[in-house]
Nucleic acid binder design. Structure first.
Lengths: 203, 203, 203, 203
DNA sequence: GATGAATGAGGGTTCATTCAT
DNA sequence: TATGAATGAACCCTCATTCAT
């Protein structure tokens, strides 16, 4: 990697770290430059203003999240999951999604919070994320229907419940900061899966 | 109401409006004062600094949310719901909760975002909210078990699914800004309830 | 004393206390009002502005200092000192002056410092104090010459040395905050008086 | 000298000028910046806050005063004064000290006034100045005893009188603003020296 | 006569941004 | 290219002062 690319990467990493910690408005360009080990003047050579840096961060976040959180691994799942029961398929999805959220939470946090305060950002983000998200959602629904003989609306309901479950864990851990042991998380997931299993008469 | 009380109320209302719109760090005391129709000097007569104003807002938000969102109306529900089927009870809960979230979203948004950036605030908020929340959750579980003959862990799973569903709607509408028609919301809720109904063999 | 006079007195006392402690510029009208147990609005009913209050304080300080520090007790001394030796006369003067400085230091401090920053004040103060001071000085010189047979210029030298001695103690104690025990002070005074005694061949 | 050093020096000089003229509390950072020909923002790049700037000024003042006022030139005096009579030695000291006070009065004034209002500053200053001062005082006493055959306590008395004399001139000229002609000053010094000469039977 | 309530003007301080080197 | 140096604009906050009650 060229030196200038390295510097740019360093700036973005620093920005991600600090913005996710303090929020965009409360993070200063001085802090970011210091964290990146460069001068403020240099920072502005790479990004014409603070807003541009934010957008770059958001872009990277979007790419990261879309590629890694939403889609790619799902494809793997689908192949691997050919012989799985529906509930096992969902368990795999939930667990993997949780793991991915874990690894990318800084980025996700920045996106979710900063789009609140920046309408053009919000439009951009939703324009990109929502279709990807819906596509993934549709895929899960289709697989569910293939694995069971439930109706479309049931499949939609279950998918929504899975999303809700993921969101709930996200909130508990990252927003409220409530730590749960792996055991507890597992138990809660099983509770949820039990409900779903019952509903699809899997057992 | 005394004049000074009116002024204080006006300041707090303005703060809530602007902070929920722009975030605490990006909201200036000048903006708040202007919105409240007073001078900045007056604002600082009422609140010794910006941080104190935020805490007052958070306090009010906590009281509001705890009293109105979490508990009170639930009690009403329980009385009224004596003869309701489990699924009908859950539908009522979901709808009322959604309505309450709707009415109090500004405050909720401020709490959820600002505790990210202020540890002492986070501790304060979680110390107050989490127990109340768990209590409510436990209540719902108990009622569910009374109305059906499901196990404790099933009840827990269902309750969690309900919470997840609420969170998902919250996210879609307020965080992502995806407007849904009432029809769509109703349909989605029915999908979810159908899954749950199946799981408790209600029909 | 009428209530309004009492209030005025209370304000001035509070002002003296606070201004001598923090300086005029750093003392706020809010502090003074609080210390006096009244509202700021009331303070401005008694003194049209902060500067006016300072001038009143200075006036009072001048009167107090001139009457009590500079002249009055000196007259007592002179009567009482008819039969004292010159050195004993000087010792009495030094001791009494030190005591008076002790009791009035707050006021003196305000005068000495604040005239630095306010030319019209300085003119006023010097116009009043300097003549009084010179008169007292002349008086001491005359008495010295009466009690000994030294020349005018010697008398002037001795008086100046006495003033210098007082100033030195003033500085040590109040400006530099160096506490000395009574013993030490006495010893130092005796050292000084010994020099003077030698010079007038008193022994 | 580097540009940044120049700027820093300019700021400090401006601060000294203005603080000695108006006092610390009444001097604004805007004034200092303007006097230094820079923006306020630049001032705060060099000194993290107003208080820090004051301390730097005080530090410089302490160094200046200790090196140039208290000690260094005294050593020169001592060498040069080997063959001087005691009174001539004292005259030299007084005159040189007066000259040095003259050149450094701004700094001295700031120290003497501002330590009144800042306890930690007072401690710092007295901790540094007092020992140096006492050392110098002791030196003068020793020289006096070498040049004459007076007792220790006489030497102490004379030294104290010299200090008092300096203080008196300091007060008259700088605090009260009473200008004296060189003639008058000389005469007054001679008066004082005459008293001392008599006391040590120099003539 | 006293005060609760309000504020314009200004204070110290920080910020994103620029530019000469 | 990278940065040392600088800054206008804005921020949070305080102050002496006013005025209706």
């Amino acid at each position: 990697m060229k030196k200038s690319e390295k510097t740019k990467k360093k700036i973005i990493e620093s920005a991600i770290k600090l913005i996710s910690q303090y929020g965009y408005a409360a993070t200063t360009t001085a802090q970011i430059a210091k964290e990146a080990g460069i001068s403020e003047a240099t920072l502005f050579k790479y990004f014409k203003d603070k807003e541009t840096l934010l957008r770059e961060v958001i872009n990277i976040a979007l790419i990261q999240i879309i590629n890694f959180v939403a889609l790619s691994p799902l494809k793997e799942n689908i192949k691997k999951s050919k012989d799985l029961k529906a509930s096992e398929f969902l368990r795999t999805i939930i667990n993997e999604r949780l793991e991915l959220l874990d690894k990318n939470f800084d980025l996700l946090k920045i996106i979710l919070i900063e789009i609140q305060y920046n309408d053009s950002l919000k439009k951009e983000v939703t324009k990109v994320m929502v279709p990807k998200f819906c596509k993934t959602k549709g895929l899960v629904e289709k697989i569910l229907m293939r694995k069971t003989d439930i109706s479309k609306s049931m499949a939609k309901g279950i998918t929504r419940l899975v999303i809700g479950t993921l969101l709930t864990f996200l909130y508990q851990k990252y927003i409220l900061g409530l730590e749960m042991s792996n055991e507890e998380v597992k138990e809660e997931i099983e509770n949820v899966l039990n409900v779903i299993k019952k509903s699809i008469e899997e057992e």
